[in-house]
Structure formats: structure tokens, C-alpha cells
Write a protein that binds this DNA or RNA. Structure first.
Lengths: 411, 411
DNA sequence: CTTAGTTCGGCTAGTTTCCCAACGAAGTGG
DNA sequence: CCACTTCGTTGGGAAACTAGCCGAACTAAG
């Protein structure tokens, strides 16, 4: 099981990746600055930059202003060269997002689609169609990879969806199916859990970017978590880390769909929310309305200080905080990011959650752990997928194809 | 914060470390086998082995038997060259362990010492004395490092014990104090939490060795956990990961010393055990008896099928399982190792815990996660410390001093 | 406007580390 | 004893980084 030892090619790869990583974190830098930061010589930096330019990962930027002496020529990421593509399978929609090397979302499209009635094959057909459109739109840029976000347990190594109750999927060989339909290489097509990818998105470009220890909690009918520890995604031994929805919170709690009692999901899942704040027949509980619309109704009621709504939200926020405090005590993250519907009702859910966490975390921790709403909204998972796809090239820039010699136009 | 880029020295270090790591995991191998495993050339392997030999990390072993052709000369770790030293501060004792490169414990000494009445300074004096004796005993071998295990929250970067309630320590600059007293370089002296080090020991040499995702749970008055995910210790943003003792398990549970209700510790800590299985005045509850003796009494009662004892153990085992199931759902480890007093009563605590975990873990997980008792007993923490100290040299073999040229005796 | 000073980035020579190919060494099998 | 196989070393060569020099480009001062 020992990782590969390092040969010279790996050394080069590591240094190319280092340059890309620094440019990504610090923005444009001159070669001289890169040399100082890296400890490598200017000559080495120049060859690295030349190779990255040939691979269309970086390009010449402006001229560094100010200071004495010859100004440096800025080297910056080239947003036009490479794209990462994220796909998303939801219960009632499919979506695609494309990000450039700078981490900017250059395309985001969501199409309504009833996955349940379409079934696996027709869903894959449609997903391939959506992905194919985006691949065409990418044009001359190199599509570094495609990552599919799925709300369920995923065997990432094989690209198989083991179990996605909400989609009624079980043992779906999604990576194979898509690669075949798209003619896209299988090794650049991955499938992952939505919470994991959302956590990745928050880590890469979210408000708490580059926080090495963070946890993302999805708020939906099911509750899941994506865990990043020490700057690396924690998947667990069989890839099922973050399945926090079925933590036992209350031995006497209500029955859960999993058959047990008092799972966290029964306290803070969307079903619990609707049950707590609306009688049957209330439009808020109408499963045919889009979730954003229902959230808007809840928000307006809360703003009108409707007592039942406020009470329900407070109760759920508190239960949310109790669960979060457990995860905090296990993992000691710097920040817990609440996504999905939690982020849609920040004023009423996150504040009570914060109070519970502060009261329950280990003393010294309470002062440092932050609980915040996601600002990526419902696009977090697919954006994370697109970023994860990009990271293939970030981690090994030699994956990007080398451009022909710069055709120097003769005078 | 990008890590160091790779220069040639780092390349060499990585390859030296790779050889050591493989030899540690696979035992002795010939140069030819190492070349095949690594993908490096035989020539490169030869130079790597030569350097490691000069640094006394490996030595020539026997001759590989069997097969056609010239038999290979085995290269194996040299147990005499380097030592890792682990110190342990307990409430009623200090201890020291020394391990060699093969991971074998070559010395283990425990001295009774009342830390509470001695206070911080006298404890550090005594600890330095114990460590000094061991440094002398190490002789010609190179002491790679010293790691001190403390039952509490530790700032590992600074070597400061932030809070250790059982020792009544707060903000103790242990690394500085010891380094000064011992004349040992500060950068090779670290302080860490006992659960983290126990997890390290299990990962390095325990029965579940090399399991990349494992969790170690200490059973004592306080409950703590050491988390290894993806082969790396998870410390959390401020180093307080694994503080599972104060997870809220039951909103209506008994009062905890931390002031809240229903913490896991109140259900499965040693205090809960004694409370459940003995009336006041019972010798089992006598805090002046050593813990091993009290456990022996409990064990004999359980073997005699004493009803109160069996009931208490079953109840605690079940609560143990509920808590473990939460951690399992968050982290999806391959194994949960129960240490401390849990390991002393395996037949009566671990089996009920297993049943709860199987019933509560996410479906697919229940089949794969294992719950076992530690077989390192009460020495896990200090052994882990010694191994952690060794890992400094494993990770960068150039830390070990280079021996003079092999003084070839003239004929 | 000229000159001095500073910094940038490319260039060349040199070092380190790894790779390749060939070869002697040390066994087995006939 | 000889063919055969495999091991580990050796020498030549390539890849990648280093050191230091130089022209280029800009600022500052006279």
C-alpha cells in the first residue's frame, strides 16, 4: 500500500502543481516573486512557467506596478485553457456547471427532470445530453474532467451509486453509463456524494475558502455531511463518511424511515420542518411546488412573526445545533457550514444552532468554531463537482495537453 | 500557505523515506524486490540503501532463499541504530517506553507518582529524571525524538498542555520545561493527547495495524478518541478533535462535571461504571486501589454471573455502542478500537456495544465496521508516543546522523 | 537629458539524482 | 563443468534544479 516513490517526472509534476496552486491562492505573481516564494531558482521557475504556458494553464498578465527596478511580468492562471464540469442529479432536476481555472463559474444550467418516473436509463440518456451540450460549449478549452453529484452513497473508486433512496437508485453504474454515452474517457469521469462535493466547493471557493478543517451539512429531506480535515476530504474506509442523518439523537424520538428512533434526520430534515410548521394541506407542505418557493413562503411568515413558524424554526434550529455540536466535538473543525434549506432560512435556524453549539462544545473550542450558512446556495454540489474535476489538472498539470510551439509570426 | 515545493533534496528524502516505509510494512526485502516495488531502477535503490546503511537505519540481513538465479541480499531495518522514546503522564504514575526501528518495545518502565500533590514543577523534574535515565540507556543509538502523552487538551505546535482536568493542569509549557531540564532539542520533543497517541500505536503496531481509517476510544474517567482518517491523524483546527466525552447523548440524562446533561462520559465513563455496579463502600469504588485491581474484581464478579454486575456492564456496553455508532456514522472507519478499561472487560462490554453499532450504523456500513478491544492495554499511549517520535526519522531519514565511512578493516 | 542604481528574466555552466545497459557475481539444474 | 537465471554494481547519459552573469527596463537623482 505504500504510495508511489518519487522519480524525476513526479518531481516536475509536483513543482508544476505547486506553481498552479500558488497562483490559484495568491492570484497573479511575477516569476521573481514565485522564485522567492518557492525557494527555487529563477531559472527553474522560468522553465516551469514556460511549460505551464504551453499547456494553457497560465498566461502572461500585466506588468507589476510600483517599486524600483525593472517591473516583473505577471504570470496568471489562463481562464480560457481548461474547464472542469460538474453534473448534478436531483430528484426533480438535472444540472450542469462549468468552471474555469480561476474558479469562476462560466456556465450553470438546470433543467427540470423527473428522475423517479424516468428511471435510471432515461436519466442517464438525458444527463449525457446535458453534459454533451456543455462539452460542445467548452469549445477549444480542455475539459479536465466531469464529476457527477448524487445524493446518496457512492463508491467513488468504481463510479457506482450504491444507494440513493431519494432517487430510488441502487447499484447504478453511473460512470460507465455516462462515459459510454458521451465517449468521454472513464478515468476523467467520477461520481461522488453531494455533501462531499459541496464541502469541496466551500473549501475551494466558498466564503470560508482554504479553511483546512471544515464541515458542510446539507439540509434536505436527508441530512448528510462533507468532512474536510487537514485540507483533505475524509471519505472513510468504504467512502460513507458524513452519513450523519442517522445519528441517534434521542432514544425516545420519533420513528425514522430507516426503522430506528430519534435519528437526527427526524429532527432537522425537511420533513420535520414541514411537519412542525404547517398543517396538512398548507401550501408549504405541497411536494409539487419547487423547494425555493416553499422556502420563500416560510421566510415571509417568519418575517411576519407568525408564532407557529417561529416556534418551529427555533425548535429545529436548536436540534440542528445539538447535532452540529456532536460533530464539532468529534472533529474540531474551524467552521461548520450549513447548506441546503438551512442556508435559505439563516436568521431563524442558524442563530439558535449557534447558541446550542456554543453551549455544548468543549470549552476552549466554543470560542473558535464558527457556524455559518452556505453562500453557494443550491449550486454548491455541482460547483464542487466542477472544481473536483479541475483539481485533476491542478494536482498534475501534465494532464493538460501541450500546445504546439508558439507559432512566432515572422516580421 | 502552500507547502514547500520539491527540490532535489526533497526528492531524495522522499525516496529514502519510501524505502524505510516499505521495509517497515513488508519486513526485509532484497534490493531487486525494492526496485520492482518502487518502479525505481536497481541502481537507484542501491544508492538509497547505501545511504540508509550509513545512517544506521537499515542493515544487511540474510540471503533470500529459493528460486533460480543469484539470491538477493536481504535489506532490513536496523533495530540498533535509532530509538523513539515515549513518556506518559498519568494521574498516579509516570512512565517511559522506548521502541526500536522495527517497532519493538525495548524498554517500558512505570513509576508510581502522585502528580496532583507534586504539582507541575516537581512532576516535570521527575519526568525529566525518568526520561534522562532512558536517554542514557539508549546508548549509542540515536534518539529520534521524545513524545509526551498527556490526558488532556494539548497545543501540539507549541508543546503546551492547555487543559488537563484530571491532572489539574492548565497552560503548562511542558515541552519547554522538559527540553530545558534534559538538554534535549526542543524540535525533537513533542507533547500530544493520550487518545491521539494510542490511535497512532494501534495504527502502527496494533492488531489492526495499517488500517487507514480507524478510531481509538479511551475508556477512563474521561472518554476521548483518537481519529485516523486516510492514514493520517485528524487533529482538527485547534487540535481538539476526538473530544467525544461530551457528546450530548440524552437530553434528560444525568448531570456531567462539565455542567451539561447527558454527556456520553456520564454514561460510559469509569464513574458511571462504578456507580452502576457498586454501592458506596464497595472495594470496587475505592479510588485508592489501582485500577487494574478494581477491574479484576469486576471481572471475577462477572465471571461468577453476579446479576448486578452483569446488568451494569450490559447497560454501559449498550451506551458505549450508541456513542460509537455516532462516530461511525460521521467517519466511516474500518475499525473502532476500544481501549482503557473497555479493553479490560471485553466479553461484557464490547459484545453489547457491537450489537448496538450493528443496529445503528448505515446499512451497508454495519457489515464492514469492526468493533474490537485494544490489545495494547494501558501502554498504548506511551507506545504511540515512542512510535510518533520515531516517525520523525521515518518521514525524513536524513534526520538520522550519518555514520563515518564504513571503516574497512585492512587485510 | 544623462547617469546611477535596482530588479527582472533569460542564459549558460555545473551539480545532483535518476535511468539504462552492460557486466561480473552467485546461485540452480543438467 | 557449463548453461541459465537473477542479483547488485558500474559507467555513461539524461532530466531537473542551482548559481551566477548579463542585458533589459524602470526609478531616482543630478
Amino acid at each position: 500500500m505504500p504510495e508511489q516513490p518519487t522519480d524525476r517526472a513526479a518531481l516536475r509534476r509536483a513543482n508544476l502543481a505547486w506553481v498552479v496552486r500558488v497562483l490559484r491562492e495568491q492570484g497573479g505573481l511575477s516569476r521573481a516573486q514565485l522564485a522567492v516564494l518557492s525557494g527555487l531558482s529563477k531559472a527553474t521557475i522560468s522553465t516551469l512557467v514556460a511549460e505551464l504556458t504551453a499547456r494553457r494553464l497560465v498566461r502572461a498578465g500585466g506588468i507589476a506596478a510600483g517599486g524600483q527596478g525593472r517591473p516583473g511580468q505577471i504570470v496568471e492562471l489562463d481562464p480560457s485553457g481548461v474547464r472542469g464540469i460538474g453534473l448534478e442529479v436531483g430528484v426533480d432536476h438535472l444540472a450542469v456547471t462549468s468552471v474555469d481555472t480561476a474558479g469562476h463559474v462560466v456556465a450553470d444550467r438546470r433543467v427540470a427532470f423527473d428522475v423517479l418516473s424516468a428511471g435510471v436509463d432515461r436519466t442517464m440518456d438525458k444527463l449525457a445530453e446535458v453534459a454533451g451540450d456543455e462539452l460542445t460549449a467548452v469549445g477549444a478549452a480542455y475539459p479536465a474532467g466531469i464529476t457527477v453529484s448524487v445524493p446518496g452513497l457512492v463508491d467513488t473508486a468504481r463510479g457506482v451509486v450504491r444507494l440513493a433512496p431519494r432517487l430510488r437508485w441502487r447499484e447504478v453504474t453511473l460512470a460507465d453509463g455516462l462515459a459510454g454515452r458521451l465517449g468521454f474517457p472513464l478515468d476523467r469521469l467520477t461520481v461522488d456524494n453531494d455533501a462531499n462535493l459541496s464541502a469541496t466547493a466551500e473549501y475551494e471557493i466558498g466564503g470560508m475558502k482554504a479553511t483546512a478543517d471544515l464541515i458542510y451539512v446539507t439540509g434536505d429531506f436527508g441530512i448528510g455531511a462533507g468532512v474536510i480535515a487537514g485540507g483533505r476530504l475524509v471519505r472513510g474506509s468504504i467512502g460513507y463518511a458524513g452519513e450523519v442523518g442517522h445519528m441517534s439523537m434521542d432514544p425516545m424520538g420519533p420513528q425514522c424511515s430507516c426503522g430506528r428512533r430519534g435519528c437526527w434526520e427526524t429532527q432537522v430534515g425537511l420533513a420535520a420542518l414541514f411537519h412542525a410548521l404547517a398543517a396538512p394541506g398548507d401550501p408549504v407542505s405541497d411536494p409539487n411546488r419547487p423547494i425555493e418557493e416553499r422556502m420563500a413562503i416560510v421566510r415571509s411568515r417568519a418575517e411576519r412573526r407568525d408564532q407557529r413558524t417561529l416556534g418551529a424554526l427555533h425548535q429545529i434550529g436548536a436540534a440542528l445545533g445539538v447535532g452540529v455540536s456532536i460533530v464539532v466535538n468529534v472533529l474540531s473543525p474551524a467552521v461548520v457550514i450549513l447548506g441546503g434549506y438551512f442556508a435559505a432560512l439563516p436568521d431563524w435556524l442558524i442563530e439558535p444552532a449557534r447558541i446550542e453549539v456554543a453551549a455544548r462544545a468543549v470549552v476552549a473550542e466554543a470560542a473558535t468554531v464558527r457556524v455559518v450558512g452556505s453562500d453557494l446556495g443550491f449550486t454548491a454540489a455541482r460547483t464542487g463537482g466542477a472544481l473536483a474535476a479541475l483539481s485533476r489538472v491542478y494536482d498534475d498539470p501534465t494532464q493538460a495537453p501541450e500546445r504546439m510551439q508558439s507559432t512566432e509570426a515572422p516580421a
